[in-house]
Every structure is written in structure tokens, then in C-alpha cells.
Computed example of a mutant assay.
Amino acid sequence: MLQRMSHPAPPKPTPSELELLRILWQTGPSTAKQVHEALATDRPDMTAATVLRLLQLMHAKGLLLRDESQRAHVYSPAQPQDALQTSLVSELIVKAFSGSGKALVLAALRGHVSKKEREEIQRILNGGKES
């Protein structure tokens, strides 16, 4: 009889780690230097050494994969953006909304969604495709 392996929940990234993950999801596998350059406009306070250290910590936590085949290591997210977002939203639903997805959606719709986003949500609810 086969037993289902239980996978540990992915680690929860800090706000700074999420920033770096967003860059990697947008740009694809990158070196620390490339991540630092992409981040420099929005976060001039973050040094190249800090970015490298964060990437190393994120790799140790299991948030990133690291290709060590070249001198400059190349980092990539360990999971797709939608998978991590789904995990974070699930945790939020349980913690803040007593497990109710409906309560989360209603809270989001109260002031956190633009008119254009509401129209897109309505199209999806009416059976249309996500744009």
C-alpha cells in the first residue's frame, strides 16, 4: 500500500524576501548582482552585500534554488509565484477570516479593488476568462 508523503509547508518569506522573489519571478534566474541592479531603483539603501546575504538565507530556508555551476551563483524561486501566493492567502484566510474565503473576498472588495479590477472580477464570475 502506498503512503502519501506529507510535504512541509513552504517557509513564509519576510517582506524583504518577497521583494527579491518578485524580482526573480519577473526576471527569471539571476545572479546576486543582477538582483541588486533590479532592486537599486526602488531600494537604494540595500547594498549588494545585503542582497547576496538575503539570497543565501533564502536558499538555506528553501525559498530559492541555486545553480553553483558558474562562478557567480544563479538564484531562482523554489516555487512558482501563484503557488506561494496561494499558500500565503490560505494562511491569511485561516488566521484572519476564520477559514472563510468569502469573508476575505468581501474584505478585499471593500476599498481595495479598483473599478477596472471589479469589472474583471465580474467577467470571471460570469464565466469569462482572466485577462
Rank of each mutant, 00 (worst) to 15 (best):
H112K: 13
L24D: 04
F97C: 09
R118P: 00
T31S: 15
A9R: 07
E119M: 10
P13R: 08
L92Q: 05
E19I: 15
S76H: 00
L57H: 08
S131Q: 08
A40H: 09
H36V: 15
G62I: 03
A108S: 11
D67K: 03
K102E: 11
L84C: 02
E68W: 00
A108H: 04
L57F: 01
A40W: 05
L109I: 07
Q85M: 09
Q56G: 10
R4V: 12
L18W: 05
I93L: 02
S100Y: 02
A107W: 02
R53F: 09
A48Y: 07
P13V: 13
A9D: 08
K129Y: 06
I121K: 01
Q26E: 12
I23Y: 05
V94P: 00
R123Q: 12
S76C: 00
G128I: 01
L106K: 11
A48N: 08
A40G: 09
L20P: 01
G111K: 09
I124Y: 02
E117N: 11
P13H: 10
L84S: 03
K129M: 10
E91S: 13
M58C: 08
E17P: 01
P29M: 08
V35D: 01
D82N: 03
E37D: 15
E119L: 14
E19V: 14
E117R: 13
L52Q: 10
G99I: 06
S16I: 13
S131G: 04
T41E: 06
S87A: 14
N126S: 11
L52A: 15
P8L: 13
D42L: 15
L109N: 07
V35I: 14
S76G: 05
R66N: 04
L104F: 05
R110V: 13
T27K: 15
R118I: 12
S100F: 03
A96M: 04
V113H: 03
A83I: 07
T31Q: 07
R4P: 00
L21P: 03
L18Q: 12
E91T: 13
A83F: 00
A108K: 08
D82R: 08
L24N: 04
L39K: 13
L125S: 03
L57Q: 14
Q85T: 12
